[in-house]
Design a protein around this nucleic acid. Sequence first.
DNA 1: ATGAAAGCGCTAACAG
DNA 2: CTGTTAGCGCTTTCAT
Lengths: 341, 341
Amino acid sequence: MTEHSNPSKPPTIRDVAREAGVSKSLVSLVFNGGENVSEERRKRVLHAAELLGYRPNLVAQSLSAGRRDVVAILVANLHNPLFAEIVSAAKARLVEAGQRTLIVSAQVDDDDGSAVLDRDNIAILRDLRPSGLIAVGTIRGFAELADLTATIPTVVASAMDTTKDVVAVVRSDDNTGLDLVVAHLAEQGVEQIAFIGGDGSRVSASREAAFRAAAARHGFGDNARVERADFTEADARRAVAELLTQGRLPQAIIAMNDLTAIGVISALEAAGVSVPGDCLVTGYDDTMLAAIPRISLTSVDPDNRRIGSAAAEALLASAEGRVGEVLVTPRLVVRGSSHAA
Amino acid sequence: MTEHSNPSKPPTIRDVAREAGVSKSLVSLVFNGGENVSEERRKRVLHAAELLGYRPNLVAQSLSAGRRDVVAILVANLHNPLFAEIVSAAKARLVEAGQRTLIVSAQVDDDDGSAVLDRDNIAILRDLRPSGLIAVGTIRGFAELADLTATIPTVVASAMDTTKDVVAVVRSDDNTGLDLVVAHLAEQGVEQIAFIGGDGSRVSASREAAFRAAAARHGFGDNARVERADFTEADARRAVAELLTQGRLPQAIIAMNDLTAIGVISALEAAGVSVPGDCLVTGYDDTMLAAIPRISLTSVDPDNRRIGSAAAEALLASAEGRVGEVLVTPRLVVRGSSHAA
DNA sequence: ATGAAAGCGCTAACAG
DNA sequence: CTGTTAGCGCTTTCAT
């Protein structure tokens, strides 16, 4: 552990060069793995750098003909604990591959509480000229970032995107996930089921389609209904009311994610319908919410760490061309909310 | 909406200068609110910029003798929905004041799932030379960032820090918060209470001290106990077991935050103690968890938006010197978990 | 193998 | 008021 003697500004490449008695360029070479540097000089430089506590300035590096080793991870928002797992797994894989990462949030909540692109963050990211981009979660207005995705290899994780120029979309295999759920419910002897999907997001649409397919496959036919609700509890309540007034209450409700499921449970219970007594409920994502004993929600674990590492993998492989869609196989976590008993 | 004609690289200040028939410097002046630019030239420049789709390169700006208008918001982690509110409120205030913001996460989860400083993020942030720093939440290893906090006006929000050189620490007034809780519990006729604090964090310690003071104030004397647990459910269970084996079960347990409270409830119910029937429980933070009907946890709302804006305010006022500690007054949100009835 | 020199995009004195 | 000239810290030809 050595201290750098100059108390004011951080040392620059020039300071190191002077200390080592070599030129700037040589220092740069050493720090960028240049092969053709004499062992002696290399040592001198490294030693001087250590002595001074020199760290290359990333901003300068990026300005000067973009460095190709920093990957930006754009997180949809700071709310969703889900994303944290994906991000850390992706980062771990990237670091392993010798890449630097910059993790920034893509959206902020404006005054109305709705998410909007964080233009400041995006602008800085753009100017940093990252070598790659991983977008985690559904980002509203992601299409506006076309100038980025067109230039920079981009992978979308845990979201869907139609943009032609993303290297890969890595997400949970909704078909398998919903099949697991429907099969489980069928096993419990359920005969009428309903799906409560979300807002207009593509993920929601995909899960809805997956539900319809799974329901058909398991012979539910007309006994499978679909309702929509955004993620607010108020809206879940509305959707449930809808379901209730349509006559018969389904014996099970499949929510597109855990948050919606909790809204559904709340709405059902507020209406005097007990869960799982009178109606089973399942979620998707297997967030920590699902595991809380009082909630004990059967949910689909999408294996977020695998999604994250697969996204990183896809990006690293992007040199070899488009990867396309990577579907990560989920597994069902059965809890109290789906045991009629 | 105009397109820039050059399909390859984004336009630079030079392109704009050429297009407008002026010098680089003039363009720079126009974009930095220079007063002494003739109206005509200014228009020409603005028009050329618009035409080309020019956006100043922030990285270049920051490299070239630091711009003084970008504030970095360092978020402890991506898990805690709490922070999202603080961040967005702080950002809103900053934007209002004409500041740019960069929101980055300060920590990542390593393989063990424990949080560590995200050195990449920090390094980039440092090199960007932000004009100010707002650290949101307790960041492990924050002390290692001393070189930053020593140089850059820093405000800590929703955490405590002893570093001498932070401009301000903005946090919930724990004393008031816990007094509200204890008073409420006393009103319910509770005679023995216990506090379950957390890991070794300063916030936890502060709330524990606040609890002791409030308990004394409300005449609990020896009937107030303290137990510790980290935020895992397993540990909450252990702490509760501890409490149970100490003989009498307290009539109410005050948890240092909502997450711990939920662990406590789970542990109590697993031990056959009903909440709120046999024991009342309260939390702190008023997260969305508390509002879930099945949880219905009485909690202290710290008013995160005010914490965020106050932090921004303190930073903006930092020119006028150290602000010190800003305590934001919380309010109690009473829910089912604290109604013996 | 090494150094000199020319930028990356921008700002900031400094002259005109 | 406007243009010229130096850099910010680093990479990268291009000579040597």
